[in-house]
Write a protein that binds this DNA or RNA. Sequence first.
DNA 1: CTAGGATCCTGTCAGC
DNA 2: TGCTGACAGGATCCTA
Length: 302
Amino acid sequence: MPELPEVETVKRGLKPFILNKKIVQVEVKSDKGFQGAEADVNEARAIGLRRRGKALLIDLDNGFTLMIHLRMTGQLIWRGASLSEQTVSVETENQFAAGHPSKNFTSELPNSQTRVIFVFSDGKLFFNDQRKFGFVKVLPTTEVELDKFIAQLGKEPWEMQPGELFEKCRRHARAPIKAVLLDQKNIAGLGNIYADESLFYAGVHPATMAGALTEEQVAKILEGACKIMTAAIESGGSTMATYVRPDGTTGDYLEKFAQVFRREGKKCYKCGSVIEKTRCAGRGTHVCPTCQKMPSEGTERA
DNA sequence: CTAGGATCCTGTCAGC
DNA sequence: TGCTGACAGGATCCTA
């Protein structure tokens, strides 16, 4: 799940716990989840946390940087002192959990999904991932911008002008607009949730060919992406606090802001029509059939 | 060059 | 209950 707002939430939430702290030891449980040399991390101090698109960057005081990508199901969980061997609740102090919401947020760690453990002097940072798509990569700080993923990344939504996104749409004129939004080379940070939500905001059907959109429509989509993601960050992205209900049961953090995502079969908040789930750009896609009109014949693509 | 599909991996859920 | 197939919030690689 982790898209831009979730990674930003991880960055902000983790900062007070690990900034200026020293990594005493790294325990790699899954080689696939750790690229680079452990020796370049041991005994290093975290001196800065940054984010580019969906990538989290932790700069160390020895000239190296940890690049962490959570992909679909990654999560970062901080447990202070001796909290790792026990279950915790939202009220527990000195803990923080964000990323893909799952029961790992509150359960004992490590568990079978733990890929890497960063041991600090006063706590542990767990990198968990149900599927092994996410990774931690150690690279020289000066080479972060040269990393293939970072180098190709499009602009952050807030730094992009509507005209630039419109130009991307013209470049990919025959692709559905949703595919254009999901391609990180065009614009950084949008994933399946925020692409669907931004398109609903703009009243644009996801299957509309990008080249058929007006500059005004593209501007509206970009405006939606910025507003929705800002609101998501302010409400805490996907953290334990937004995932665990007051009574302790776990739920869906999307309930708090999603207009269409995972709302198939339910009524549109705007017009009352039933939200539909279809497939577009190879992904599950949610639309309000009334608010997001299918373009006229010949301008669509399944 | 672009667009679209397969693919990495584990877990869950619907349907039989 | 147990099995099977579809699908899951990402990004890359391969093909046409």
